[in-house]
Design a protein around this nucleic acid. Structure first.
Lengths: 158, 158
DNA sequence: CCCAATATGTAGCTTAAGCTACGTTTTAGG
DNA sequence: CCTAAAACGTAGCTTAAGCTACATATTGGG
């Protein structure tokens, strides 16, 4: 059984994608999930440095709502991936690579949030949902979001 | 250091949310991430049963792009959470709870996909991104998406 | 200048999701 | 009807993210 790949493709109400296409999509989602944490940290570190002048491990932990050893563990992963460095009692710093990632992530975050708001999602929900959604938005979608926002701004202005 | 919570709230370009609000958002995203896998499985099982008459562990593994022991492990988790049952060499079946979840997840998936398409995201990207985004869309956002789609359908019809 | 509060570090555990390697059970085709 | 392919199961490993408990290091205030 179950060995009837393409031949029997009757257009059911919920037509399945091909195995390959579906596996590719799920694979992308898995990758996004595994980098989501890194992106969250890098984004938060950038935000903290910009608004308070420093990013301390304890502050990061508190803002993420996790214990400080958890934060330290993940920061160790950031170091391994050459995204950040740390000077004990002096805070966490982003490498060039980390800053580049932070810029991309923050731009994406803003765009996702704006789109949700433009679609009429209430502010609080939009901010919460954006935190999860942002990690799964491709370049192609970002482009579309940006164009869409330009469109609604023009419409509003007219 | 770093102990200057609310008092020093100068409106910087990237104003931070309060610690509590941010922790709550990240917590929600973490929860969503941990249920995303369950939702993917339940949705896929429902799709397979509907379109091929059965959901076999091996097919699930192939479609997710993971090894079959990985699929079996996660299906064990589905059983533990009372979302599915299995009859060896007969396939995986959803419990009442599993079917209820599948219905919700599929409706949400469809809505997210439609919104992405309505925003002008190319089909292939929309389908890939929806796979990751769907797990992070709250009820409030779903409501807004639904209203937005009604609006664009009316606009198109006029 | 010293000591308590705060920050940081370490150890060791849990759960989840992945993997490979190997074994067992069905089932279907010749 | 019997055996090979496919499906299923089990063992045991890895990495990541979370936790608690405990230990150490800094620093600011009195």
């Amino acid at each position: 059984m179950s060995r009837k790949a393409s031949p029997a493709r009757k257009p059911s109400p919920h037509a399945l994608p091909t195995e390959q296409a579906q596996a590719r999509r799920f694979g992308k989602a898995r990758t996004a999930r595994s980098t989501a944490i890194l992106e969250d940290y890098v984004e938060l570190i950038a935000d903290l440095i910009e608004s308070t002048g420093e990013a301390r491990a304890t502050d990061i932990a508190r803002r993420l709502g996790v214990s400080h050893p958890t934060a330290i563990n993940t920061i160790a992963r950031l170091k391994r991936e050459d995204l950040a460095t740390a000077r004990p009692y002096r805070g966490i710093f982003l490498t060039e690579k980390g800053e580049a990632l932070a810029r991309r992530v923050r731009a994406r975050h803003r765009l996702v949030l704006e789109v949700l708001l433009a679609l009429g999602v209430p502010k609080e929900a939009a901010e919460a949902d954006a935190e999860g959604i942002e990690h799964h938005v491709s370049e192609a979608s970002l482009k579309a979001f940006s164009d869409f926002l330009k469109g609604s701004r023009i419409k509003k202005a007219s």
